[in-house]
Design a protein around this nucleic acid. Sequence first.
RNA 1: GGCCUGUUGGUGAAACGGUUAACACAUCGCCCUCUCAAGGCGACAUUCAUGGGUUCAAAUCCCAUACAGGUCACCA
Length: 479
Amino acid sequence: MNRIRTRFAPSPTGYMHIGNLRTALYAYLIAKKDDGDFILRVEDTDQGRLVEGAVDIIFDTLKKCGLEHDEGPDVGGNYGPYVQSERMKSGIYAKYAHMLVDMGKAHICFCKEEDLEKQREEAGDSFYFVDPCKLLSKQEVEERINKGESYTIRLNVEPEGTTSFTDEVYGTITVENKTLDEMVLLKSDGFPTYNFANVIDDHLMEITDVVRGNEYLSSTPKYNLIYEAFGWDIPRYIHCPPVMKDEHQKLSKRNGDASFQDLLVKGYLPEAILNYIALLGWAPSEDREVYSLKELCQAFDVKRIGTTGAIFDIDKLTWMNGVYLRNMDIDKYYQLVKPYITETLGDNLDYKLIANAIHDRINTLSEIKDMILFFNKTDEYDSSIYNNKKAKTDPELAKIILPEVRNCLASLDVWNNDTIFTALAEKAQQLSYKNITMMYPMQVALSGRSVAPGGATAIAEILGKKETLSRLDAAISRL
RNA sequence: GGCCUGUUGGUGAAACGGUUAACACAUCGCCCUCUCAAGGCGACAUUCAUGGGUUCAAAUCCCAUACAGGUCACCA
């Protein structure tokens, strides 16, 4: 069996959204599962739609995800992507297109785009293009070319019979040849069409498995006609179901839908994003959902790719991101979270203690800020938040409890979570309170919140004795 | 409109002719607990778009219908 080779072939028309990324992921996994090659090829044959910086975003995204490609032109010692507009300079696409003309499998066409459009409009749905240029004599063709008339090269298609192919996901699909048009291979500007360049490059790069979105399902027979015209082997096809925004629409850039970049900004981790999108349209054979990229390579199986569009569910991604945050090596976690903490609180407090306090409470990095803001300064609050059913507290009780807490803590010499907790628990017992009855008002006094990370004693430890006492005093005087 | 493809709970999904229709997210309870989380436990589809078949037996096979998506470019 040949070495598996897959490719990701995006066109640089904007940023990378989750659906694109998932296609890249699948292509990568299919190659790596069998220790094959993954190639990145930028398809920029439409000069009109190029977007500045798009290639960089694609490149950067794949890199951040660890989806590194295995070959490409040398760029400062690294592999760059293959870029079709660059490859075109050697004239390969035109060469192959003319080769087909010489073989009698394609023909020169002088029809103007505007004329065709007009015809199409007039004929409506029943439009079937029969190219008059097919009847032109070789001599006439040469003359017109020499005269400088612009032309395209179109594939010859016999309208009889059917063409079928087998997709690894969707199975065998058969279409009637008369529904296939004589597509343009080489445009009048000398650029190849996407379809043509795609086939040529896939063949030249010895791509064995073509992985792409299922919007190409209906045009695949046309691609096969090109392979057949050349007498080339047809690759395995793996068409992926779409990633949807909702029941009706695919994820799109225009609606500001989830792009990889956006998700990073919102505090999601590349590993979690990758893991989550792998599950959008594919299901593992075992009862498990959390996979590293490496594990995904092992577990992935084309046979288990589904056929229906999957709606992108940010809630589940959020959950999974939390799983990654919680399971992460603790030192790595500290490093990751540190900038988010120091950005809002500065360097005065122990960031590790804060990181510990929020460890089980955050699902995304961007939640950190709001959660820890109160360490800077107590939130404004109404004394009604002293009412707590579970703690059986209210503002009146707080008025009694808080001074006790204050006095208890004021006499503490060693200041850490354990000593604080022990002292307060003893005090609570003395006064016949449940722990929570002491702790809850203290938490409110220290944070100004009914919900705060870490527990009252952890907050006190982080704030330090001085600040803790001062906040307690402030709270008491406010009651 | 022609052609192609699809349709299991709010979401992702498993099942490959015989199960109480897994599992996960979300939601809702309960437990644990110094609040909230995290963690644990439990509830949540008498039903697999609908209608017909085939079969002892169908979410699984067949046929219609409905709905949805894709595609019919010198765009990718």
